[in-house]
Nucleic acid binder design. Structure first.
Lengths: 410, 410
DNA sequence: CACTGTTATTTATATTTTTTATAAAGGAAG
DNA sequence: CTTCCTTTATAAAAAATATAAATAACAGTG
């Protein structure tokens, strides 16, 4: 076995432990950099070139690494390049959403090796874990993957998820609070569970707009306001994994009642639902708008996206709604910026697709509410990968766990 | 030299680099643990006992480490204990406050080896750097410290300090925006500059109430509201060192005008100044209060501490003021808790000394504004070391820098 | 107080790694 | 096309490190 558990690693002799750690460092570096020369690896892991070579040779013998051509030189002999074998390791990623779940398998080049299969279900489904396992097995067989090469299974889900324990405290059904335990039994692999917004944030950090930003905030702007944070280059989850409850910070003393039971939560004035509420009451009151004709007698089919599209088509009423919502959202964002001084904020979800109709009012509010020195350095951008950032983030997180966290390695 | 610069380390051969890193790891471990056996060191640095022994012997020969007695055993031969020599390294810590500066020197046991000398001055003093240097030199001589054993000089100051560059963007005077540069010239040592609230947070994290809490918030509750954050066990400064502007988050849409130019900042309703304002207007309006007699004709000498003391003596009016301020503060704190899910919040500064008179209204507001799952796990405590947490934090930070950040060491 | 079990320390040997030297491969300049 | 320089690759010598075995120190027990 190339990778072993922490428990097994404890029983290794000093020499074997060193070897194992070096191997993991090499694998981690190859995972992150794709094509590297032996000299670069040697530099990175602070080990002489001959030993680096034997390490690489061992990994080649184990089938995890391969040589792939020769690189460019800046004056001397061209180096042989090494890379991870794409099929050396696989991870299964599962994204649980409100009424559906996505399942997909990635290889060690972060490439999808299966379709993203979507199943209709919900968090309280009686045999969710079993269903997820069955579908995963189907995918493994279809893609003809050797089961032993699956190194980890990851799940993201909404709610208050403590990734250290895998327990979701927002779910009433006790059996599914701790779905990790059930999955562990079924899969017999390393299981990792985290919150959906956090995995999206990691996806943006590694593959998206927040790449290379050590301090980034990613907000999924939809029915709720999911916030994932990258702080000091690390995913931040808080002491019990509940960090990022951006939608339920209270900005109005006597605001609208939120479904969480509190009053004046940001979600009550800056979510998809608030957009719908405003649109519906406007249509009912006979406001002139493009939305009136198609939806007047069919209010229940009105979706937030429709308001966004109408705004893009020039509908003044829709623009004013987005303006209001943007201002409210901006007030919350200003708080975040003052507290965390991020260098980038990435917005995802349907509302973010309103582009300038939403960015302009946000910026307006930030100018009002923030210290100039702090707000002037932050970039606000719209995600380009928010349909898959969660699964990608999960994929990256799993490989981080399996190949060693940068922060873990001593 | 036991410690060298990063630049020098780059020119080391692989073997010497390894040796150097191991030495630093040993020193760091001894700095953190005080008394350890060779076996423990060996474990910690993943190196065999014989080599650990030679490492320790070398460090003893260099005068940085000494044996100090023997430890307890659980059945076998008692181990020889090793510890850092107290006088092996020293750091100079400088705390710049609004109208004064504190200077003190600590040894590698985090012990003060001089008095804490206070000089009257302010950030815009024409020759602040020179004065600080002169006083430091006096202290060095008085304590008979060998100058070569001073390994770093640290400064904390209020404002928007970027600790990576040492520049303070809140100070108008350009020459003193970058006091680090001037100090570097004078001292010729590693200079570290950071924000006051952050250093207090680190002090609490390492020596105070937040010890062993990986996610802690420390608030200095005084004229301003200084926030320092420990997230994932690391000090958090944001992308440009401006994180923690808790006092200037906007919670009231049309609130009081703040000196920062914005309206409705938390500081306008939850700082020392707001306590004074309420007390003064109450006294002027003839409210019955213990404060009336001593201060009626002498309002300018009224201090926030007086209100706190009156409350403790049972003065209803003062209690009601603290109640209001506690509620306002609680609203801000609720936002912090929802976003960051800390396990402890440590309050320092004069207002925090009001104990239950302020904790009760805070808790009340938290119950209203927070999700129960998040607020129920957070402990709110009053600092016991807030008169010296800043210098202590700075001392720890300097040794972290010099002996290698845990996160830096690979 | 001798005996046994346990842990710490030291020494000798075996193993691993680095260093140094040398060869091979390629680029740049004349 | 040759020479010189730089970089990579490999082999052999030298140094550093780990392992294992031996010794020392101590606690508990009969």
């Amino acid at each position: 076995m190339i990778l072993i558990t922490k428990e097994e690693a404890k029983h290794l002799s000093i020499n074997n432990l060193k070897r194992y750690r070096l191997r993991k460092m090499v694998l981690r570096y190859l995972y992150e950099e794709r094509f590297v020369s032996a000299a670069e690896v040697s530099q990175k892991i602070s080990v002489s070139l001959p030993t680096t070579k034997t390490l690489l040779d061992e990994l080649i013998a184990l089938g995890a690494v391969m040589t792939s051509g020769i690189g460019d030189s800046r004056g001397g002999r061209k180096p042989a390049l090494y890379s991870l074998v794409a099929g050396a390791f696989y991870v299964i990623t599962i994204g649980i959403e409100h009424y559906s779940a996505k399942i997909a398998i990635f290889n060690s080049h972060n490439e999808l090796v299966t379709e993203v299969r979507t199943i209709q279900t919900n968090v309280n489904h009686p045999d969710l874990a079993e269903k997820l396992h069955t579908v995963s097995m189907d995918l493994i067989h279809e893609a003809r993957i050797d089961d032993s090469k699956i190194v980890a299974v990851g799940v993201y889900m909404p709610g208050l998820v403590n990734s250290a324990t895998g327990i979701n405290y927002a779910i009433k059904n006790e059996a599914y609070q701790n779905i990790g335990k059930t999955l562990k039994k079924r899969f017999g692999k390393t299981i990792y569970i985290d919150n959906d917004a956090r995995m999206q944030a990691l996806g943006e950090f590694i593959f998206g707009k927040a790449k290379d930003s050590r301090n980034a905030l990613v907000i999924n702007w939809s029915w709720g306001l999911g916030l994932g944070m990258i702080l000091n280059g690390q995913l931040y989850g808080g002491s019990t994994g509940f960090a990022g409850e951006f939608g339920h910070i209270k900005l109005e003393e006597n605001g609208i009642l939120c479904y969480c039971g509190k009053r004046g939560c940001l979600e009550t004035v800056a979510s998809s639902q608030s957009i719908l509420n405003m649109a519906i009451s406007g249509i009912e009151n006979g406001t002139i708008t493009q939305l009136a004709t198609p939806y007047k007698d069919n209010l229940s089919s009105l979706k937030p996206e429709d308001v966004v599209n109408a705004a893009r088509a020039g509908d003044e009423f829709s623009i004013s709604i987005l303006n209001k919502v943007g201002n409210s959202f901006g007030r919350g964002l200003a708080v975040l910026i003052q507290l965390l001084n991020p260098e980038i904020i990435v917005l995802g979800g349907p509302i973010s697709k309103a582009q300038q109709f939403i960015l302009t009012p946000i910026q307006q509010t930030l100018n009002q509410d923030c210290l100039e020195k702090i707000s002037s350095i932050v970039r606000i951008e719209i995600s380009e990968i928010d349909d898959r950032s969660g699964l990608l983030g999960l994929c990256a997180r799993l490989f981080q766990k399996v190949l060693g966290d940068v922060t873990e390695v001593r």
